[in-house]
Design a protein around this nucleic acid. Sequence first.
RNA 1: GCCGGGGUGGCGAAACUGGUAGACGCAAGGGACUUAAAAUCCCUUGGGGGGAAACCCCCGUGCAGGUUCGAGUCCUGCCCUCGGCACCA
Length: 804
Amino acid sequence: MGSIPTYDPAAVEAAWQERWAQNHTNEPDLDHPSRPFYNLMMFPYPSAEGLHVGNMFAFTGADIYGRFQRLHGHDVFEPIGFDAFGIHSENYALSIGAHPARLIPENIETFRRQLKRFGAMFDWRQELSTIDPRYYKWTQWIFLQLFNAGLAFRKRAAVNWCPVCKTVLANEQVINGYCERHPDVKVEQRFLEQWFFAITRYAERLLGNLDRLDWPESTIAMQRNWIGRSEGAELVFETPAGQKITVFTTRPDTVFGATYLVLAPEHPLVDALTAVEQQPAVRAYQREVAAKDIVSRKVGDKTKTGVFLGSYARNPATGEAIPIWIADYVLMEYGTGAIMAVPAHDGRDFEFATQFRLPIVQVVRRDGEALPFESLDGVLTASGPFDGLPAAEGGKRIVAWLAGRGLGTPRVQYRLHDWCISRQRYWGPPIPIIHCERCGPVGVPERDLPVELPLIEDFRPDDTGVSPLARHREWYFVKCPKCGAAGRRETDVSDTFLDSAWYFLRYPSTDEDGRPWDPRRTKTWLPVSTYIGGNEHAVLHLLYSRFITMVLRDLGHLEFEEPFPKLRAHGLIIKDGAKMSKSRGNVVIPDAYIQKWGADAFRMYLMFLGPFQEGGDFRDEGITGVRRFLDKVWTLVYDAAGAPPQPVPLPPAVDRKLHQTIHKVTVDTERLDYNTAIAAMMEYVNELRNAECGMRNAVEPLVVMLAPYAPHVAEELWQRLGHDTSVFDADWPAYDARLAASGDVEIAVQVNGKVRARLTVARGLDEAQVRAIALKDDTVRKFVDGKAVKKTIYVQDRLLNLVV
RNA sequence: GCCGGGGUGGCGAAACUGGUAGACGCAAGGGACUUAAAAUCCCUUGGGGGGAAACCCCCGUGCAGGUUCGAGUCCUGCCCUCGGCACCA
């Protein structure tokens, strides 16, 4: 047998990484693949701290899946890139006094080195970075496609403003009224001209398509909630002067109980509806609300406030005059910015009515229910001709009745807002627009793309709300491309979510300069076969990517409208019960672990920590177990490699276990249940060791199954077994269901549902046979003797239950 | 408040459509090898009780009920925890 060299991961891994690069092992033929499989994972933001275990956990899980597909004969394309623009990079650069244009490429270099070290099958030919002008040229091109299609527009909008970041924040960057980057800085409200994408026009399709996506239920639910479709009606309340106030309601059945109206303080009709004597109070209230930031208005103190306008409108159902109020609990951006208040059947209206002593009229009844009664499960009352109808049915009839008089119409409303893509910052792709006095906003002609982000030393944002680019005069002033008059460049840069909304389209075509992608390659590789990423992107990134893809399809640039038919979400790796973050100081960097244990052991350890799709708590105690396992495999294979090459039949117990293992590893890997797949391989190795079976045909399939998990050592062992091609060119082992289900079985014998004995019997016995054997067992007899067996339940090969 | 996960040994976790709870691994204890240690190998390990022993009994999957021959798994009502949304009419 001879002495076995010890397993030295560092040497094995370096050697194979070099060979993969030399042999182009991970570079599929992009133009003529026979069975293309696009294995996509969410590209990282290259932070200054470097790749942390959370990234590596995600990428390893995705890489295992790609390698598994490769072993099933697919041409797997597994690209990687860097999402390197954005406020995170810029703020970090500011905080250490560096320039992002110099700092970020260094970070990328660190990431690239770390990514190469852990041994994923990345196709480095197709690497991309969002800060590369060759990339963002096409990000700008996409903006222009939307602009030319009328889907990009400018609007003055109330925005969240962080006085420290000196920029607009998205609502999700505001945590309880404070900036997510600066937990002690209150967010303010500002009004600025912003660029928006009209994503709301796609709401119905974005929602409807969810039904046919193979995505985690929870992700679908989050998207559904975010889009927030509600069905209801618009109803019209008229004032004596003939002004029409339109409200949106999901409860038209309760219109007979509407005892007052509430408008948002910014509602355009407020001035016209305010009685002279109420003007001072109304103005004061409007000013007070405007001074609040939009977040604390929504999230902060929810005590109801409001002011009576001093005027009235007619309830279209009862004909009664009801007072009109303004209150900040009504939001201008949702529905029509006005509501009919039904205090008997809405908690918020109830609170408001109680506070300001407004009338409360119950119009839906169910026995034993107190007000406010919000359920639709009741019967109409005090509703004229509709009394006695179930609320849902009554609502439909009331809308029809009001529609007949021109006072109502059914209406679907979404919570989704248009996507604000403007950022008053430096570190992003300039929005490719030139403002002209005569022509208005004009798109930069495609031949002039990219609009390069100029390298300016003073990129610090200031308090004006205008991007630092405006201070760069030779860049800022430019001729209008349409009329030649003096124009000014748009100085806002676009949201990073736009960079990442199309990167998967670019990967197969990174070598294209004249167009964003090669249509033939796109047709070959897209849509993405499997997309694996974190649930922190469940809503925005995925929704925006779907939207952009849909628009590009409508404009004739793509042939599909859903980019990710199959999505899987991995869990989060936490440390000491908390999410890893620099501020908590609990970020784990993988380099030292890889150094000590090897990339293969560390990959497997991360996957063995818990279910991939749920994540887990990082502790480093367990890694020795995985490393010991690899050492055992190493020894077993070296022993087997010395055995004669012609196959001899395996001992039946080993053969059975082998086929059971193949079955389990196959099924579990396909489902991303990596932790149990690894456990199954460990069991098999234990079996081989117990049986002292060091046979070639017992270990060859194991090496192949191990390959997705521990690719370097699998290659080394495969070669040791005498193969001169990559293990990834081998076939995934087939399993024989008959063999897997051969041999004896242990049957549990229960008496009255309690296990009293375990019998080892031949497979496939019938109830009578098992029962006869069971009744000979001493322990069973102890519980059965002297009693009548009333009933027996038999589950083939598993269990016999005697009921006495 | 609403929408989703999840509560199982000392720890990370397994358990397919109701059918032998705790696979696999860590840690711990004992033993072998060694001058010694590390490494490696073997054994034990949910709690309690009985037996000289092979073994046997009772309890046990967040809590309280229920359905069932049988419940970690299904139903009802709670508690805790983690994500997401949050005055969306």
